[in-house]
């Protein structure tokens, strides 16, 4: 216990330093984009938040499978924590995108297929949390949450694929945009480095939050356990 606490504390410090470094890179190292100006700097954290948010839901999918296989409640705790953090990242992605879209697209929100799918994906995971809340038996809650995490995550790629043939105005900076995309730009190598560093940083932030959240859940379960033992004694 003590050892893992120390590891966690180290992770917390490292995460804080990385976040500082990433912020510094975004504002000082990455060059100013020619047409969009300073608002383009939102891009680095926007991409990082959106990608890592998606990765968090992927983790829920994988640990859902593991939970159904093994029945180990630890997987359920990780799945639950991952959805919570993933939702925060998703909201960050949407909010930062909105801030960028206002000057670039001249609107906070547009009914673009990519934006709609992203929001529906977030709603799947809001439903996941609501489902958990509505179930009392912890075993059943874990099982149903695992199944919903699997079914929900399978639905996401089909949705992304099925809207692919619609023209999207969302730029795809990595891998090339469609003809209709607005606000795309060519990345110079300091830009690319900043973006990759942001993604790595956000991944470490995710791991750090996950570790803390799972630890909190385990501690609260231990408290419940001790309380029950005290009352029965």
């Amino acid at each position: 216990m003590l050892q893992s606490d120390r590891a966690l504390r180290t992770l917390n410090v490292v995460t804080g330093l990385l976040l500082l470094a990433a912020t510094g890179m975004v504002f000082l190292y990455a060059p100013l984009e020619r047409t969009m100006g300073a608002v383009q700097r939102v891009f680095y954290f926007h991409v990082a938040a959106a990608w890592v948010g998606l990765a968090a839901f992927l983790v829920t999918f994988v640990v859902g499978l593991l939970y159904l296989r093994t029945g180990n409640p630890r997987w359920d705790r990780i799945g639950h924590a991952s959805v919570e953090i993933g939702l925060v990242y998703t909201v960050m992605g949407a909010a930062s995108g909105s801030i960028w879209a206002r000057p670039a697209w001249n609107t906070w929100w547009t009914w673009d297929p990519r934006l709609i799918t992203y929001t529906v994906m977030a709603l799947i995971y809001v439903a996941y949390l609501m489902l958990r809340q509505g179930l009392e038996d912890p075993n059943r809650r874990a099982r149903f949450a695992a199944i919903y995490g699997i079914v929900g995550f399978i639905s996401v790629p089909i949705t992304f694929f099925s809207i692919r043939i619609w023209r999207t105005i969302h730029p795809v900076v990595v891998g090339g945009s469609g003809d209709a995309a607005q606000g795309s730009f060519a990345m110079t190598s300091p830009m690319l480095q900043t973006m990759l560093f942001s993604v790595v940083t956000f991944t470490v932030v995710y791991i750090c939050l996950l570790a803390n959240r799972v630890r909190l859940e385990e501690l609260s379960e231990r408290v419940e356990h001790l309380k029950a033992r005290l009352l029965s004694a």
């Binding site: 799918t117 529906v120 439903a127 609501m130 929900g152 639905s155 089909i158 949705t159 809207i163």
Partner: peptide
């Protein structure tokens, strides 16, 4: 709430 977002691809297609 559970079903509609998951079944979105059906609805779209």
């Amino acid at each position: 709430i559970l079903l509609l977002p998951v079944a979105l691809p059906v609805l779209v297609a």
